[in-house]
């Protein structure tokens, strides 16, 4: 695994000059992953913040070959690109000769958990050789903070607003990492850009594997979380420290918890710093909901600990 000095010496493959918000959580994930292999990378991205803001004509932030086609099909699109590569490689028809190329699809939680889920499941099942990276900021941020199936329970979004009767999003979030792992892919993991060593190691591992691999990476969104841009790294640290976003991996069916906080941070301590949960701190009803959320986080965390080291 490379040190930061070594990584910094490698070519920057995602340039500045993109139009993502100040303090956006996505670029550190992209930058690090693009530096996690010595092979060449070809990438695609689902419609969303990352795609729109990085490719406003005539400016592209991508120094790797990159394409976007639509919202729900990043995994299907990369299936086509990767298959073309295999066919052209066999016939010695690759432009610029035979080079090792890794294929990466990026999508937000909307493009991955929801509208792009079918295409993702299909591509995983077919076994294409690619890495899918989900940057999960827990809502449809590009269209203005609407709920996704990754949105946290009782969080405020513009389509699950904290109202007088219904205080935010009713449902618990979809556990996509487990669902992906149930496809029996060779590698699936959860990561946080704050724990950059862990993320880098996971990306290196995933990119070295021949077959479909998946990284679910938590990403802070100052706009949608009602937080300050400067605190984006802190928030994805707390996501891990609270065990809301555990760092774990499932490699060849074996689950491993990569990080166990010594003192688990109470979920309320993190939620309190985010405007999307402020309604939970106003009254007893909110307090009761926070207790329930804590219980569920504890239960999910315990389930992971129980499975640590086990073959699923």
């Amino acid at each position: 695994m490379a040190t930061l000095k070594e990584l910094a010496a490698k070519e920057e493959l995602f340039t500045g000059g993109h139009r993502l918000c100040a303090g956006c959580g996505i670029p550190p994930i992209v930058r690090l992953i693009l530096k996690s292999t010595d092979a060449r990378i070809v990438a695609t991205t689902a419609t969303g913040c990352l795609e729109v803001a990085s490719s406003i004509y005539p400016y592209s932030a991508w120094k790797v070959p990159w394409m976007h086609s639509a919202f729900e099909n990043a995994a299907a699109t990369i299936s086509g690109v990767q298959t073309a590569y295999e066919v052209l490689k066999k016939q010695d028809r690759l432009p610029g000769g035979d080079k090792e190329i890794k294929f990466v699809a990026f999508g937000g939680d909307g493009g991955t958990y929801d509208i792009g889920f079918q295409a993702l499941s299909g591509a995983l099942e077919r076994g294409h050789n690619f890495l899918y990276v989900c940057y999960d900021n827990g809502a449809y941020m590009n269209t203005g903070i609407q709920r996704s199936s990754a949105s946290p329970q009782w969080g405020n979004t513009t389509t699950s607003p904290a109202g007088a009767v219904i205080p935010g999003k009713v449902q618990w979030r979809k556990d996509l990492t487990r669902i992906v792992a149930a496809h029996n892919v060779p590698y699936a993991a959860q990561a946080s850009p704050h724990n950059w060593r862990d993320l880098h190691k996971k990306a290196e591992k995933a990119l070295a594997i021949n077959g479909p691999t998946f990284l679910n990476v938590v990403s802070a969104c100052p706009l949608g979380w009602y937080t300050k841009g400067q605190d984006s790294d802190a928030h994805v640290k707390y996501a891990v420290e609270t065990c809301y976003w555990p760092l774990y991996e499932i490699e060849e069916g074996v689950l491993k918890v990569n990080y166990k906080p010594k003192n688990k941070m109470p979920i309320a301590d993190w939620f309190k710093m985010q405007g999307r949960f402020k309604h939970l701190f106003k009254d007893d009803e909110g307090a009761a909901k926070l207790v329930q959320i804590q219980e569920r986080v504890d239960m999910e965390w315990q389930r992971l600990l129980d499975l640590d080291g086990m073959r699923l």
């Binding site: 299936s79 073309a84 295999e86």
Partner: peptide, 26 residues
């Protein structure tokens, strides 16, 4: 034939895969 046949999970993905492949120069 030498074709890479991608038996996708929907027509939306069929055209998406064709778009990916054609973008790759296939």
């Amino acid at each position: 034939v030498d074709t890479g046949l991608i038996t996708v999970e929907s027509e939306h993905s069929a055209m998406s895969a064709c778009i990916g492949a054609a973008s790759a120069g296939a």
